[in-house]
Design a protein around this nucleic acid. Structure first.
Length: 110
DNA sequence: ATTATGACCGAAG
DNA sequence: GCTTCGGCCATAA
């Protein structure tokens, strides 16, 4: 699907040490209702080393799933400097706020 | 066309 | 805070 290609494209742009959410990516695709589908797409990630989908978490902060296991996802997030508390990203809102500055997802208008 | 299944979301309890 | 439930959208059978 052309949509999945865009998903991977966006995920690649998430800076190391930061995170985004399935919902934010769905919004960037133009349809917030696609959040679930975004997860489905990432579930088919054949190259987790090149597509850093460990940076994509749920909108409530829970880390969510990962091809290599949630534990590995948490491990990589922490290694990148993202704090995790009880399977949840600490201060997720700060990260999302950061994306409003960077024209990564909301290019065009704010 | 209908049904079931997901790395989800939001509102309620 | 937490768990539960209905809704969402694409894909596969």
């Amino acid at each position: 699907m052309v949509l999945s290609k865009k998903v991977f494209e966006l995920v690649r742009k998430v800076p190391y040490g930061s995170v985004t959410t399935y919902l934010e990516i769905a919004k960037a695709l133009g349809n917030p209702g696609l959040a679930r589908h975004v997860g489905n797409v990432l579930n088919g990630n054949q190259d987790p080393e090149r597509i850093p989908c460990f940076k994509v978490v749920r909108s409530d902060g829970l880390v969510g799933g990962y091809v290599l296991g949630a534990a590995e996802k948490i491990s990589r997030l922490e290694k990148s400097g993202v704090r995790i508390k009880n399977r949840r990203v600490v201060n997720l809102e700060l990260f999302l706020h950061r994306f409003q500055k960077l024209p990564i997802f909301y290019k065009g208008d704010g």
